[in-house]
Design a protein around this nucleic acid. Structure first.
Lengths: 187, 187
DNA sequence: GTCTATACACCGATAGAC
DNA sequence: GTCTATCGGTGTATAGAC
């Protein structure tokens, strides 16, 4: 495995456990099994490392989520697939999710270009826009519907993470909460 | 104004702007108009200061929120009051809210006793429990309904903060989204 | 209680050999 | 590309006068 990735993996683990500030680069290098100087060979500053990690995780999440979407289904079914995919992803990548959460509420977020952030939610926005235009979804401001769906998903994720459910029970919760969400947003 | 509070105010402002780690105690003291040593007279460590600030804000938020609740109304109306109050509070205290968000996703959270965290959401939990028992709310796991409501509120808050609405428009959004929420959770 | 002055640990980043 | 060694800046926390 290449050292660049080993450094990212080590950084992820330590950042989530101790926070950005309480994780010295020396510890990251040690955890990754590389020398301190090597870290700075790949990432010119610690800040750059943090941002690179964010972009890396976001990209992998987006790729994974959009990979399994079956276009051609009804809008409702596509939305359900997105919904399920995103919840499944956070369940399977709890550490990554916690890092993203931490990053999103930190001062680092401003340092990431707005396009980089928007890029990942564009397909979902487009889907919602289409739903409103086709009168399948309630006639509301797209941004509002988007944040409503996002908030719902966030809440369910919190719930699933806080409990130790079996796969089957998780799937059931995802099904149930999607029905509730759909009932709220459908026209 | 007493120096202890001045320090908290300064810390809040700087933490939100630069993050915990990029805010040295020296800057906090300067912003508060006190000497560096004075800060450590009141708060033995920087960590203690961060935690004290969290508890201070949470307490003020809880006090303010529960102050304006009219008991005796229907459960639906009480919930609406809670909902409205909490959104109004975050709108009026955006900085405090961002600090709490940052704190909640940080490693500091573990250092706060679970009771301290639960204490602030207990009345809301009780209300939901009662609603389920009285068959006014859907028969579901209390925790799940709680996180669903929390997620919804969180989403709407994000939306309101991201837009620059007039008071009237804000109130309208709060009304509308409560109706959607209520439609989703009522039995 | 509040201040000034300072100790000293720590960590991000660099230099330079291999 | 990767390492070791180290420098210099920074920041938490303390000591001690008032």
């Amino acid at each position: 495995m290449d050292k660049k990735q080993l450094i990212l993996d080590a950084a992820l683990k330590l950042f989530v456990e101790y926070g950005f500030h309480n994780t010295p680069t020396s510890k990251i290098a040690k955890e990754a099994g590389v020398a301190n100087g090597t870290l700075f060979y790949f990432y010119p500053t610690k800040d750059e490392l943090v941002k690179a990690l964010y972009i890396d995780i976001k990209s992998r999440m987006t790729a994974c989520m959009y990979e399994n979407i079956q276009t051609g289904s009804s809008l409702r079914d596509i939305m359900k697939q997105y919904y399920s995919s995103s919840l499944q992803w956070t369940l399977a990548h709890a550490t990554e999710f916690r890092f993203v959460e931490q990053f999103n509420t930190s001062a680092y977020l401003k340092q990431i270009a707005a396009e980089e952030v928007k890029k990942h939610m564009q397909p979902a926005m487009d889907l919602i826009s289409k739903g409103i235009k086709d009168k399948v979804l309630k006639p509301m401001d797209v941004d509002m519907l988007f944040t409503l769906i996002g908030g719902h998903t966030f809440g369910v994720n919190q719930y699933l993470v806080s409990k130790q459910f079996s796969k089957a029970k998780q799937t059931q919760v995802i099904e149930e909460t999607f029905e509730m969400l759909w009932g709220m947003i459908k026209n």
